[in-house]
Write a protein that binds this DNA or RNA. Structure first.
Length: 723
DNA sequence: GTAGGGTTAG
């Protein structure tokens, strides 16, 4: 910072001082700015219009602008002209503060000032969807009233504004009414379509440009390729690629190459993506990240990781992409592990990263890590937006902590349909059917409309709470009330609902009358109900249909065999066993997860790989004695592959959830809830045993199985033995 | 003495 002039203030008064202006141009921090400002004041030049303009412009365009200081400066200026208003509005705009920008605009009108060509581009750029819905049309009218329609910048920004709020129809009208349509205004409309996810319209617009002989530039190409990537439209994307090849000198930019790589990768054409990638003269972090995402999405997680490890530099987007890749591949533990690596390399995550991590925690039932993430977000001031809160609700629900999920839900000031759906589904799987319906009715009072997924939650709430009549009513009204045509998944829910409440004939009738082909879920729901209500004939029928759809589904044989066993049809059980041996079908191994001190431990039945195996098995022995003393009798009707009674007993005794609970009892304090996540349905023996464990050890045990939560406490389960 | 369009992650 050069020394400031120590000149006599009066000497400079009322003339423009070029020294101050050039000092402002060199100014890089608010501290320096304040020094110059004080000099300007003591020189008596603070009220000179030229100095005011320079000062406000520079203050607003500092590398880290101080909005409050800028506003103070603005407020103290003796004459606030349109230029100063525009500059201040732009500052708010740059800070995504539409309401302050709007308030200033209103103040400007009140002052009798007229907006000019610059005002609306600044002001409208600040607008988000909500501000547009509230004030967009009015401002559009102002544009016309003040005669600014003829300005192409103003029209571009109007298009941008309408597109952002989803009114692409109005955006299109402005485009149509534009007298001079240069490539930029075409691009504006296309980016508008992209923003409102009207990707097909973007592609159509590109074709229109070709027909009207408007030459696309590199921005056009990037936009249209982005639309192709979202649509996974390889055919259209390749056509755009040809256009690029026809005009290489103009269109070959790094951004275009990146967009091409991303398009091919998104469409799953990894070999073309790879050859483009290899031949690029220069690549940046975006190029690499697109490749990593492409490999991950095409199911090649190892290739994704291979590339990821070789990236010359990685930013938080690349790390998040890799975390997401692991989640897509169901490698949830790896997703959490690589986040630790991310922290080691001192790359700061953002809210997107957090959502991914919370998803992994939800899948693993890793409550402690999930809690840690919430604290981490608070400590590191990571944006807690609606998506993050939705992920938290989902994580808490899937970890069986429904109270905490409700707390997040209640604290939210802005909720979207995902929020409501997450809360409804969360309550449903945790067994709070009535409460789930309450939330659903609350949702209907807002302007948020339920969708297909919401209804899956609503119907499963009725199932888990045994509310057959209510469920039937909601099912029959979903098309009338919300125009949602029931799909095969909804029919699956209905069959499940009827089956679980004992209406087997009605469930079967529903399947016969449904307007589409029943899928495996539908027949599976019926088969499950047959098990509970011991209906062998219908079970055979359902199993036969199911095996036609999924001949390798071992669970069907197991379930059918269980039903035979339950009905003492041992000949049939024997036949089933032989059939399985003959067909060489393997049972999906049962697997249970438990999180202890932030680490997720995984157990399969009969597992002896854990470092604490000896202690676990000896704890299991103790438990077995205590349980038997408390009246527990092993129930082996659902044990399947074992021949002798004794072997069966020892097989159920080593079920993965029992191992996990033994481990949990060994490694957690009294009074702490033991939380287990299981990949299959819990078996009847484990269910009995855990009820007694909850009583004998005075522990709450929460088991999440394939379909729902079982909250065990004081010898009872929240599912009321009904699952 | 100010203005318009673009790419990656949920």
């Amino acid at each position: 910072m050069p020394p400031l002039l120590h000149s006599n203030a009066s000497f400079h008064q009322s003339i423009i001082n070029p020294t101050f202006i050039s000092l402002l141009e060199k100014c890089h921090s608010i501290k320096q700015f304040k020094q110059i400002h004080s000099q300007i004041i003591s020189s008596g030049l603070a009220h000179s219009p030229t100095h005011c303009r320079h000062m406000l412009s520079f203050c607003c365009s500092l590398p880290a602008p101080n909005l409050a200081y800028s506003r103070l400066l603005f407020d103290e200026m003796p004459v606030q002209d349109v230029f100063l208003f525009n500059t201040m509005i732009r500052a708010y705009s740059d800070h995504n503060d539409p309401s302050s920008a709007l308030a200033l605009y209103v103040g400007m009108l009140a002052r009798g000032l007229k907006p000019n060509n610059y005002t609306f581009p600044f002001l409208l750029k600040a607008f988000d969807g909500e501000t547009t819905i509230a004030h967009g049309d009015e401002l559009h009218a102002h544009v016309l009233k003040f005669g600014l329609w003829s300005n192409v910048f103003v029209r571009c920004q109007l298009i941008h504004m309408y597109a952002l709020s989803g009114k692409s129809h109005t955006a299109r009208q402005i485009f149509e009414l534009s007298p001079d349509r240069d490539v930029v205004i075409w691009n504006s409309l296309m980016s508008g379509y992209n923003r409102s996810r009207r990707f097909k319209d973007s592609c159509k617009l590109f074709e229109e440009m070709e027909m009207e002989n408007v030459k696309p530039n590199s921005v056009t190409i990037v936009s249209v390729l982005s639309a192709c990537a979202k649509l996974k439209d390889l055919k259209f994307g390749s056509r755009v690629h040809l256009v690029v090849k026809e005009d290489e000198p103009v269109l070959r930019t790094l951004a275009v190459d990146n967009a091409l790589v991303d398009m091919y990768a998104a469409c799953g054409d990894m070999s073309t993506a790879w050859s483009l990638f290899e031949n690029m003269k220069s690549r940046d972090v975006i190029t690499w990240t697109s490749m990593v995402t492409g490999f991950a999405n095409s199911g090649d997680i190892h290739q994704a990781r291979f590339l990821f490890d070789r990236m010359p530099q990685k930013d938080f987007v690349s790390w998040t992409a890799m975390i997401n890749g692991y989640i897509q591949a169901h490698y949830f533990k790896e997703a959490l592990a690589i986040f630790r690596e991310m922290q080691d390399s001192k790359i700061h995550p953002d809210e997107y990263t957090m959502v991914s991590l919370l998803t992994a925690c939800a899948q693993l039932g890793a409550l402690e890590v999930g809690e840690w993430i919430r604290l981490y977000m608070a400590r590191n001031k990571i944006k807690n937006d609606t998506t993050v809160a939705n992920a938290l609700i989902d994580m808490y629900s899937k970890c069986g902590c429904i109270e905490r999920a409700i707390k997040i839900f209640k604290m939210m000031t802005k909720r979207d349909k995902f929020t409501w759906t997450a809360m409804i589904t969360g309550l449903a799987v945790n067994g709070f059917g009535e409460e789930a319906l309450d939330i659903f009715y609350q949702m209907l009072k807002t302007s948020t409309r339920p969708d297909e997924i919401t209804y899956i939650g609503v119907l499963s709430a009725c199932t888990h709470a045994g509310m057959a009549e209510k469920g039937k009513e909601l099912f029959s009204r979903m098309i009338i009330d919300h125009g949602i045509i029931p799909n095969v998944a909804h029919y699956g829910c209905l069959v499940d609902l009827l089956g679980r409440t004992g209406h087997l004939t009605e469930a079967f009738q529903t399947i016969k009358n449904m307007p589409m082909r029943p899928n495996a879920t539908v027949w599976g729901a019926l088969l499950g109900a047959c098990r509970v209500y011991k209906n062998v004939e219908m079970a055979e029928l359902a199993a036969k249909q199911l095996l036609e759809l999924q001949p390798e589904n071992s669970a069907v044989y197991v379930l059918l065999s269980n039903i035979y066993a339950k009905c003492n049809k041992w000949d049939e059980v024997h036949k089933m066993r032989e059939l399985i041996m003959y067909k060489g079908i393997k049972k999906v191994p049962g697997c249970s997860l438990i999180e202890i001190k932030g680490t997720v431990h995984e157990f399969v039945a009969g597992d002896k790989s854990h470092p604490m195996t000896e202690k676990i098995y000896s704890k299991l022995e103790d438990m077995s004695k205590e349980l038997k003393r408390a009246g527990y009798v092993p129930d082996t009707t659902e044990a399947f592959l074992d021949i002798s009674e004794e072997a069966k007993e020892s097989a159920v005794y080593k079920h993965s959830e029992k191992l996990a609970i033994a481990f949990g009892l060994l490694n957690s304090e009294n009074g702490v809830t033991i939380r287990i996540v299981k990949n299959l349905r819990i078996c009847v023996d484990c269910h009995n045993a855990i009820k007694i464990i909850s009583k004998v050890y005075a522990r709450e045990v929460a088991v999440r199985d394939r379909t729902r939560f079982h909250h065990f406490s004081h010898g009872f389960c929240s599912c009321k033995d009904y699952w």
